[in-house]
């Protein structure tokens, strides 16, 4: 599975919503993701992709849409 697919699956798990047609939707503003969901996202990225993102490095503005998250993950 590539990074994009993994991220989309993780997001679907966490938000309970299929986001494939909402790639540029702001997940924090719409309330789909909150602090708790953020922590789940980080833990899942760690478990499934081996990507270690410390909480200090999590700048909401850089992670607020599915597309941005995928770009972030792919750049690591």
């Amino acid at each position: 599975m590539d990074a994009k697919e993994t991220v989309m699956n993780v997001l679907k798990d966490i938000t309970g919503t299929d986001l494939s047609d909402k790639m540029d939707e702001n997940l924090f503003e719409t309330g789909l993701i909150d602090s708790m969901a953020t922590v789940e996202l980080l833990l899942n990225l760690q478990d499934e992709l081996g990507i270690d993102v410390p909480i200090s490095e999590f700048d909401r503005q850089e992670w607020d849409t599915p597309n941005k998250i995928i770009n972030k993950v792919e750049s690591m």
Binding site: S35, M36, T38, V39, E40, L42, L43, I55, S56
Partner: peptide
């Protein structure tokens, strides 16, 4: 509080 208590606490417990 969110970044240094809430998130760290949940991260720790869930990890």
């Amino acid at each position: 509080f969110r970044d240094f208590i809430f998130m760290r606490f949940t991260f720790f417990i869930m990890k």
